[in-house]
Design a protein around this nucleic acid. Sequence first.
DNA 1: TGCCAGGCCGGGT
DNA 2: ACCCGGCATGGC
Length: 222
Amino acid sequence: MTTTLREVYDRLFAAFGPQHWWPGDSPFEVMIGAVLTQNTSWKNVEKAIRNLRERDLLDPHTLLEVPVEELEELLQPAGYFRIKARRLRCLLEFLFARYDGSLDAMFSTDLPALREALLGVNGIGPETADSILLYAGGLPTFVIDTYTHRVLARHGWIEFDADYHTLKGHFESNLDEDVALYNEYHALLVRVGHLYCRKTPKCDACPLAELLPDGGPLEPDY
DNA sequence: TGCCAGGCCGGGT
DNA sequence: ACCCGGCATGGC
């Protein structure tokens, strides 16, 4: 790759500017959103979060008191509402079992150990864990998502088969360890993905278009 | 109208 | 160790 990841970032930032991620008024709200947005558009997530806010449930202690059936109803507009209600319960149980419900306590612990512990919670995979750590906790871990994979694979900057861990390491080993940079970079990748890097690429107006290999994107049908 | 969204899990080869 | 179906709503 002749273009560095830093140069890609600079292009994206020049094109789109700051993305102000993650939307949310508190770390807890951000953490909830990370679970709710799994394979789901953020618009739908907003409706569910609004339901929670209207009932003052954007707090670990109050949310803990909500029966799972009631939680399902509140999450309905976000889709996958039954499974997400249970996933939030699992995350809450983890938070109380280990940190007495305190996000500050949780985010003050050793990052690699906390990440592994989160991955042990049912419903928390690598992207959700890293989103929680970076966007709710302000900890330096790079978030990989489908768009990240697509953008890099289509430009030939990674092997198409590269897994989550490999992509994460690729970013973290080629960038300064900088929470603000990790934050903005991932948000920009999602933005450029939404606009130009869908299942059928629309590379014509993409700010990264001139960095494509001759003949267009590799893996265009991914 | 069908396709897709800021994944992840569990069961089957 | 992979592969795949299931999960569900709303926007374009």
